[in-house]
Design a protein around this nucleic acid. Structure first.
Length: 456
RNA sequence: GGCCCUGUGGCGGAGUGGUGACGCUGGGGAUUGCAAAUCCUCCUACCCCGGUUCGAUUCCGGGCGGGGCCUCCA
C-alpha cells in the first residue's frame, strides 16, 4: 500500500518513496530541555512516533533510522542555569531525563539517535567555517551571520518573499547585519554564558546551526523526512535549508517536510508565552499516558486540536470500553493477523488517524459480537496488529483497569461474596454489596461465570 | 501590512460533485433478578451570497467569522 504524505515544500500530498528503502531516514526537531514539556510539545513526538512505526512496518524495523534531537544549548537554558547558579548540564540532564520518562509513559518508542548540540560542537564549527569560506556567511562584531541574499532559494519552504517580510517585520534589526533577515550562526558569550572556543572567537552557536550539523554528521546531505511543528517552518527550517544547501552545492536537505498543527486551548494556541499550557508532568498525575496519546491522535495531525478536560474524559471512556473488550478476550489466544486494510489505508493517507480510529471502532464492535473462538482469535489478532501501528492497546487490560492495587484484594472478596449471593438468589444482599462497591467507585459487570469489576 | 490554514449535528472530529464516517451525549428497544457491559435503533449539521454544473457541503469568486506564522515557540 503506498504511503502519501503532505509535503510542506510542495504544498501537496505526494507518494512517499525513500531514496534508499534499506535505510529510510527521518529527523524530528525535538525539545529544548530547559523546563517541563507541555502537552503541545508532545504532539509531534506522538504523531511522528506513529509515522516511525508505520515506516518500520512497511520497510522493516532495521531499515528505518529515526533521529530526534535534544537542543541543549539555548538562552533559556542559560537563564535557568544562571538563576540556579549551576552548570547548564544540570538543567539539561534533568529535563532530558524527564522528557524521556514522559515519552515512555506516552508509549513513544525511543528514536535510533538522539543527537545533542553539545555533542556536535566540532561539526557546527566546521559547518560555519565552510559557510564563511564559500561566501555565504560573514563576521561582524564577534558574530558570524548567514547572508540570506546569497542563497537564491531562501523563502521557498515557507512561501515567503524577503521584501514582503520586511514590510511588517517586528524584528529588532541589529546594526551589524547586512540584511535584516540575516541570522546568527555564531555569537559571542558574556561572562555568565557558556562558551566554546572557535576560529571566530569564543562563543556559542545560533539555534538553527545544530540541526544542519547533526543531520550531516549522522545522515549525510539529504534525508527522506524532516518533521516538526508548524511554527518551525519559518524561520528555523528555512534557515536549516539555507545552511545545508549552501555547503552541499544545492543538494536538498530533505525530500519531505512534515509539519504538525497546534493544540488549542479554547480560542488560542497553547503556548508558554501565553501562559495557558498543560504540562505533561502534571497531566500524568490525573490521566494515564495512553489517554494522552490517544487524545493527541483524535484529530488529523495537521489540523488544530482542541485540548480540554472534556477531550480527556471522552478519550478515557472510549479506552475503558476498548480495554473492557480486550479483558473479555483475555483467555483468547490471538491469531497472527495483519492490521485491517482500511485501517492501514487510513494511516497511509497522510496519517489520517481519525479515519483509522473509526476503523478501530468497527474492529472492537466485531470483537464484541464475535460468536466463535476462531472469530475472537482473529479479531483480537487484528486489534493487536492495528495497536502496534499506532502505539495503543498494547498493555494488559488488568493493568489498565486496576491502576492502584492497594485495595484490590478487598474488592475481589466483596465481588466474590456478591456473586455467591446472586447464585443463592439473595438479591437484597447482592444489591447491598453492589451499592457498597459503587460507593467506592467500583463498577460491576456480571457474567455467566463470575463478575468482573473496574474503577469507574 | 505580507504569507498560510480554517468554518461540518448538543460536543469532538473525518470525508465526499449525487444515500453526509466514527466516537461521546440524549431518546427508544433487546438483554439482565435489577443493574453494568454488549447489541439494535432514533433525533440533530455541511457560515453567508453569487458562479460553474443535470446536481455543491465538496470546485471557483466575494463576504463574514476563527486561527497560525512573519519574534523564543511543537
Amino acid at each position: 500500500m503506498s504511503l502519501a504524505l503532505y509535503d510542506t515544500r510542495t504544498r501537496r500530498k505526494r507518494d512517499f518513496e525513500p531514496a534508499n528503502a534499506a535505510q529510510v531516514t527521518m529527523y524530528l526537531c525535538g525539545p529544548t530541555v530547559y523546563s517541563y514539556a507541555h502537552i503541545g510539545n508532545f504532539r509531534p513526538a506522538v504523531v511522528f512516533d506513529m509515522l516511525f512505526r508505520l515506516l518500520r512496518s512497511k520497510y522493516g524495523a532495521d531499515n528505518v533510522v529515526y533521529a530526534r534531537n535534544i537542543t541543549d544549548i539555548d538562552d533559556k537554558i542559560n537563564q535557568a542555569a544562571h538563576e540556579q547558579q549551576v552548570d547548564i548540564s544540570v538543567i539539561t540532564d534533568k529535563f532530558t531525563a524527564i522528557y524521556r520518562e514522559n515519552s515512555s509513559t506516552l508509549n513513544i518508542l525511543s528514536p535510533n539517535l538522539e543527537p545533542t548540540a553539545t555533542g556536535h560542537m566540532d561539526e557546527m564549527i566546521n559547518l560555519i567555517s565552510r559557510l564563511l569560506e564559500n561566501g555565504h556567511a560573514y563576521q561582524a562584531e564577534g558574530h558570524v551571520l548567514f547572508s540570506v541574499s546569497s542563497f537564491e532559494g531562501y523563502g521557498k519552504l515557507s512561501g515567503r518573499d524577503l521584501k514582503d517580510m520586511l514590510a511588517g517585520a517586528r524584528v529588532n534589526i541589529a546594526a551589524y547585519k547586512r540584511d535584516p533577515a540575516d541570522f546568527v550562526l555564531w555569537k559571542p558569550s558574556s561572562e555568565t554564558e557558556p562558551s566554546w572556543d572557535s576560529p571566530f572567537g569564543a562563543g556559542r552557536p545560533g539555534w538553527h546551526t545544530e540541526c544542519s550539523a547533526m543531520i550531516e554528521a549522522n545522515f549525510g546531505t539529504t534525508i527522506d523526512i524532516h518533521a516538526g511543528g508548524q511554527d518551525l517552518i519559518f524561520p528555523h527550517h528555512e534557515n536549516e535549508i539555507a545552511q545545508s544547501m549552501c555547503v552541499h552545492e544545492g543538494v536538498p536537505l530533505a525530500r519531505f517536510w512534515l509539519h504538525n498543527g497546534f493544540l488549542d486551548m479554547g480560542a488560542e494556541k497553547m503556548s508558554k508565552s501565553l501562559g495557558n499550557v498543560k504540562l505533561v508532568h502534571d497531566l500524568l498525575k490525573d490521566w494515564p499516558g495512553e489517554v494522552l496519546r490517544y487524545a493527541l491522535l483524535t484529530a488529523h495531525y495537521r489540523a488544530p486540536l482542541e485540548w480540554s478536560e472534556n477531550l480527556l474524559s471522552r478519550t478515557r471512556t472510549t479506552m475503558d470500553r476498548y480495554y473492557g473488550t480486550l479483558r473479555r478476550l483475555s483467555d483468547v489466544t490471538a491469531s497472527l493477523e495483519d492490521a485491517p486494510k482500511g485501517f492501514v489505508a487510513a494511516l497511509c493517507d497522510d496519517l489520517n488517524t481519525p479515519q483509522a480510529m473509526a476503523k478501530l471502532a468497527t474492529l472492537f464492535k466485531q470483537a464484541n459480537m464475535a460468536k466463535t473462538d476462531a472469530d475472537r482469535a482473529r479479531v483480537k489478532g487484528q486489534i493487536q496488529a492495528a495497536g502496534v501501528l499506532v502505539g495503543l492497546f498494547e498493555q494488559d487490560p488488568e493493568t489498565w483497569f486496576q491502576r492502584d492495587d492497594d485495595d484490590a484484594a478487598q474488592i475481589d472478596a466483596m465481588v466474590a461474596a456478591r456473586f455467591k449471593a446472586r447464585q443463592d438468589k439473595d438479591w437484597a444482599e447482592a444489591d447491598r454489596l453492589r451499592d457498597q462497591l459503587n460507593a467506592l467507585k467500583i463498577v460491576i459487570e456480571d457474567g455467566p461465570n463470575g463478575s468482573i469489576w473496574r474503577r469507574g
